[in-house]
Amino acid sequence: MTPPPASAPPESMIGEGPIWEGLVGPFVEFGFLRRALVGCLALSLSAPPLGVFLMLRRMSLTGDVLAHGILPGVALGFLVAGLSVPAMAVGGLVAGLGIAIGAGAISRATGGREDAALAALYLAALAVGVVMISWRGSSVELTHILFGSVLGVDDLALLMMGGAASATLLFLAVAWRPLVLECFDPSFARAVGVRGSAWHLGLMALVVVSLVAAFHAVGTLMAVGLMMLPAIAARHWARGVGAMVLVSVAVALAATLSGLLLSFHADVPSGPAIVLAAAALWAVSLVFGPVEGLAARWWPRRHLEG
């Protein structure tokens, strides 16, 4: 009697069961996916803290405005040089910084009631950008720019993502105290001589840099999702700024990993996949988070003695 044939030997390093194959295999097998993962994980460390500060300043909408605002610049870079990473990055940076300064001027002119003007601004920027790209590009290129493509992360794009993340983390390490002070009590900050507007400008500049760095992987429209959704989710888990930042980073890391896997297995653009994962984590936070979560309201626990 011949013994039953031994099970087929693994064809590669990755044949270690369906879980391994589904979760780790794609990254082992495909270099472009690995690059997108590394870049997005780097940005997951740096973008959510920026989102936390935007949220605390009640500027959640401004992230969206800037994300839309970089689009005409990216489109101009595309018109001049095609899908060239440096050209689109330079265009996006210039347009984003211009919009940041413009939005600040609108905010000052309207005494902080800028939401209507900002909504107008970002609709206009989106329309201009899409028109410009459609003029010369195909719908594939439009989708790539708006929603990202893991194939777009070449070495230069990866360097930009890593650079943006490093610059942001350094800036936050230096600017932490003035940013908190300026968010909580701007007039006190001015009275004790904190140059609040300079720190704020640095924050806005890094928001733009992060969005520009992120857009190759996740698209101009979705880049802001990696910034704001983890921050908004973190609000339901933490009562201090520091804890909020840590939770937001954890949420972003989880969303990046699961989003890229979703993108790979379900063959959907990477940007929406990551944002979808972040949105799911936000929904969980909204329901189950201990701070202003819905579950605590639906099933209130007995109050304490004191």
Binding site: L56, C183, F184, D185, S187, A191, A238, G240
Partner: peptide, 16 residues
Amino acid sequence: ALLPQASALDRSFPLS
């Protein structure tokens, strides 16, 4: 040093 009017501050800010 100035004590501002308390109503001018954002008291929902996550600060201890």
